[in-house]
């Protein structure tokens, strides 16, 4: 069992090389990945499709074997089946035994953790209630919608009351209501002290939920840290200013301060790159008695970081080629 300050997930120089095609061509899916997930945090594992997220998660869950490096879950090597005793896992686009009812389904997974009798019955009731599926307890999974399957899939991931929950693309394919429900569920898990690691390429969700994120591209870690730290790193905070009734002389005085300027009738929109330029532009407005309509900072997002990093990786690949 991991001590309180020991990382819940520890990945060191993890590597996976697949052999594909008739000639066994080597394809590196994960390339020297190292990261930690700390106890109690919601950790986003981000990257575009094909970046190596699912491969990494499969290595953590013992579904595929690493070609190199090490990984531990709750202090135990991933190759040890007992490492998963306090881990919950929801695979990407989960497929389940569709001939089972939700109750039978959860009972089966409970048995795999050695849960029995009334304790298991109680846990099944709690979980069906938690994921809002009590009404479908006697319905076979083959009759479920994708959203319902995802919910019952999350319930099976929680059957053993895990300390660590790993969710692979939990929001993919869900409608906005379904996504919100999964987000709320992740936050509820965090409130109960659980560590949640989830992979996603939907950055908005990660931005709303995560304490920290790691971003991988082409199997390599390109960024890791707190969301606010990452999105502000290396970016300037632009401000969009909208003004009415600015005289032509005033417009000429603002123009050198702005990185971009658009005139529409008597309305002027200017993008200012720093606080100093904002202050100087406001001085101009006051001097010319113009009317300030709005002053809105352009908030950088994970998406900006994502695109920036993707461009970086693309350029590096081109230079290398």
């Amino acid at each position: 069992m991991a001590s309180a300050d020991e990382p819940v997930v520890n990945i060191q120089q993890l590597q996976k090389v697949f052999r594909v095609g008739f000639w066994g061509r080597r394809v590196t899916a994960v390339d020297g990945l190292s990261l930690d997930v700390q106890r109690g945090e919601v950790f986003g594992f981000l990257g575009p499709n094909g970046a190596g997220k699912t491969t990494t998660i499969k290595m953590l869950m013992g579904l595929i074997y690493p070609s190199g490096g090490t990984a531990t879950l709750l202090g135990r090597p991933v190759a040890d089946p007992s490492a998963k005793a306090k881990v919950g896992f929801l695979p990407e686009s989960p497929y389940f035994y569709d001939y089972l009812t939700s109750q039978e389904f959860l009972r089966f997974y409970g048995h795999l953790f050695g849960l029995l009798g009334s304790a298991l019955d109680k846990r099944i009731d709690e979980l069906l209630d938690l994921v809002g599926m009590t009404h479908a307890r006697d319905l076979q999974l083959r009759k479920f919608s994708k959203g319902m399957l995802q919910r019952v899939g999350i319930a099976q991931a929680l059957i053993n009351n895990p300390d660590l929950v790993i969710l692979d693309e939990p929001m993919s394919g869900l409608d906005p209501i379904g996504r919100k429900e999964v987000r709320d569920l992740i936050l509820r898990l965090k409130e109960t002290g659980k560590t949640v690691m989830f992979s996603s390429h939907i950055l908005h969700d990660a931005e709303l939920l995560c304490d920290r994120v790691a971003m991988i591209m082409k199997g390599r870690l390109v960024a890791c840290g707190q969301v606010s730290e990452l999105i502000n790193h290396g970016t300037t905070q632009e401000v969009e200013m909208v003004v009415d009734r600015l005289s032509p002389k005033g417009i000429e005085e603002v123009r050198p301060l702005a990185t971009k300027m658009v005139l529409h009738g008597e309305r002027v929109m200017a993008v200012l790159a720093s606080q100093r330029q904002v202050d100087e532009a406001l001085d101009v407005l006051r001097a010319h008695k113009a009317k300030l309509v709005s002053l809105i900072p352009h908030k950088a997002s994970l998406e900006d970081l994502f695109i920036r990093e993707a461009k970086g990786v693309q350029q590096a690949t081109e230079v290398h080629a």
Binding site: M61, A83, F89, P91, F113
Partner: peptide, 14 residues
């Protein structure tokens, strides 16, 4: 093929 094995092998089952 159906990937149902993912949820079994990821449990503490050898």
């Amino acid at each position: 093929e159906k990937k149902t094995i993912y949820t079994i092998v990821s449990k503490p089952v050898a």
